[in-house]
C-alpha cells in the first residue's frame, strides 16, 4: 500500500508540521516514508505545501505527480492541486475555508470544518491537528495511537503542555471525518 499525500495551504496554517508529524509517525510504524517540502518560499501568508509518501515498499520517487490524498487547507490549494489527484483518490478539504466542490466524479471527498473544530476548542492553531485526525480516519494511512505517541516523543519540551489540546483536536477531526 502506498499513500501519496500532498499537504497544502497558507504559510502559517501548519502545513509543514502536518507533513512532519505524519512522516515521523510513519517511521514509528516502520513504514517507508519520504517528506519533501516546497522550500524557499517559507513565508507567513504565502503558500506552503509538502509531499509525504508512506509505503510498505521501497519508495521510488519522492516527487508526487498525482497524490492519493490532497489535504487542502485553503481554496487556492484546492484549485491548484484538485486535477492532479489520482482516480479513486481523496480530496480532504478544510470546509471552513474551502467552499467549492470538486468538478470531477472519479475521486472521493471528505470535508471537515477544521477551523471551526479548533475554535470550538478555544485555539485556532489546532486546525492542522484536527486535519491530521481527519486524514488518519479517511485514508487509514497510520494509526491514531501511533501519531499520539509520536507527538509525545517529538514535541519539544515547551510544547508538551499543549499535548492534551493537540490530541483532543486530532480526535475531534478524526470523529468528524466522513468519506463520501
Amino acid at each position: 500500500m502506498e499513500h501519496k499525500i500532498i499537504f497544502a495551504g497558507f504559510g502559517g496554517q501548519g502545513v509543514i508540521s502536518m507533513g512532519n508529524l505524519i512522516a515521523y509517525s510513519a517511521m514509528a510504524e516502520d513504514k517507508n516514508v519520504t517528506f519533501y517540502p516546497a522550500y524557499g518560499i517559507a513565508m507567513r501568508g504565502g503558500t506552503a505545501n509538502c509531499s509525504v509518501i508512506v509505503s510498505d515498499d521501497t519508495i521510488a520517487s519522492p516527487v508526487i505527480a498525482s497524490p492519493t490524498v490532497l489535504v487542502a487547507m485553503n481554496e487556492q490549494s484546492f484549485d491548484f492541486f484538485i486535477e492532479r489527484i489520482q482516480i479513486g483518490g481523496v480530496i480532504l478539504a478544510n470546509s471552513s475555508l474551502v467552499k467549492k466542490k470538486p468538478a470531477r466524479d472519479n475521486i472521493r471527498s471528505c470535508y471537515v470544518p477544521v477551523n471551526d473544530i479548533a475554535e470550538a476548542l478555544g485555539n485556532n492553531k489546532m486546525a492542522n491537528m484536527a486535519m491530521v485526525g481527519a486524514l488518519l480516519k479517511s485514508s487509514g494511512v497510520l494509526k491514531l495511537d501511533t501519531v499520539f505517541k509520536t507527538m509525545q516523543k517529538t514535541f519539544p519540551a515547551k510544547l508538551q503542555k499543549f499535548m492534551d489540546i493537540n490530541q483532543k483536536a486530532m480526535q475531534h477531526g478524526f470523529d468528524a471525518a466522513e468519506l463520501n
Binding site: 512532519n20 512522516a23 517511521m27 516514508v33 519520504t34 517528506f35 519533501y36 522550500y39 519522492p62 516527487v63
Partner: peptide, 10 residues
C-alpha cells in the same frame, strides 16, 4: 539535487 537535499527520509 535539491530534492535530495530538502527531502526527509528515515
Amino acid at each position: 539535487d535539491a530534492i535530495l537535499g530538502q527531502m526527509m527520509e528515515p
